[in-house]
Design a protein around this nucleic acid. Structure first.
Lengths: 150, 150
DNA sequence: TTCGTTGCAAATGCTTTGCATCCAC
DNA sequence: GTGGATGCAAAGCATTTGCAACGAA
């Protein structure tokens, strides 16, 4: 586990800068900060508010909102609805997965798309509906909480 | 189609009044209005804002919010997240079903729980996660839009 | 130099809350 | 009569927007 003193922008995948520029976008210090905050949280998902809180001293809230929207547009981040009427953001570098939200501890875990493989087929034949790319959010109780009693 | 002068509370299922009272709650004119608005919309789902709009002349917005929350607490209505950062409400008299939201026409259709029957089993074995009662929301393209081209 | 970006502050808009009045039971 | 419910107005808050100053390319 690396110490807290990351020396520079080592965390920034070269892709970020490239991709920004490829779309006529500029890589600014603020955007780097926001991207790092998102990337340093590999498992969790951050609400816009979380990002605002973690960058308050370096980036203006309005810039955070504008940047998160931008990241989603450019495909660098994904926006997911995890209930609670908030949107959550995560870096988009992982493969497609769905979200399991524990209703007790609120922890969010992932399930690989494969586990739900034939869901699309079932829905299509049952309702003539073609599932899109959007990831799913499922609610329930995680293994830990379940073991812990109940 | 009945005229605008519905004579009385014919629309109100007896259950509503009973259930309200059974929980020490009172059935007021405003609650009846809100309940009717919800019940008259058999297929659709109304956002809090929709309900506010449809009752603006008869019920104060704050009362609408308080009542919707109450209805959910009492199990008379279900609150569902259909994306878009809004909560949607529907009467809870139907059997469990999930929501298909068309990303083109925004229409919401239902799939019966059966169609997704073994989803819970799959998720449980893949991630040790026990799905709860909450209904699912799936995004994609509905049959009509698909037929209409694309 | 240029034009995309930022910060600040003000504006939005949905939702919640305090409180006096009201009314269902 | 009494405590729950309502309306009104004000407060909250997350998010958006206008605009002048700023700075990446």
């Amino acid at each position: 586990v690396p110490g807290p003193q990351a020396d520079d922008h080592a965390h920034v995948p070269p892709r970020a800068g490239e991709l920004f520029r490829a779309h006529g976008r500029r890589l600014t210090a603020q955007r780097r900060v926001i991207w790092e905050v998102l990337a340093e949280e590999p498992d969790r998902h951050l609400s816009a508010d979380d990002v605002v809180a973690r960058t308050r001293d370096r980036v203006d809230p309005s810039t955070v909102y504008r940047t998160l929207e931008l990241l989603v547009e450019e495909g660098l981040a994904r926006r997911t609805d995890l209930g609670d009427d908030r949107a959550y953001y995560e870096p988009a570098h992982e493969h497609r997965h769905h979200h399991l939200v524990c209703e007790r501890c609120c922890r969010v875990t992932h399930v690989h798309d494969d586990a739900l493989a034939d869901l699309g087929t079932r829905v299509a034949s049952a309702a003539g509906f073609t599932l899109g790319e959007r990831e799913l959010t499922l609610f329930g109780v995680c293994g830990d909480c379940r073991a812990r009693g109940g």
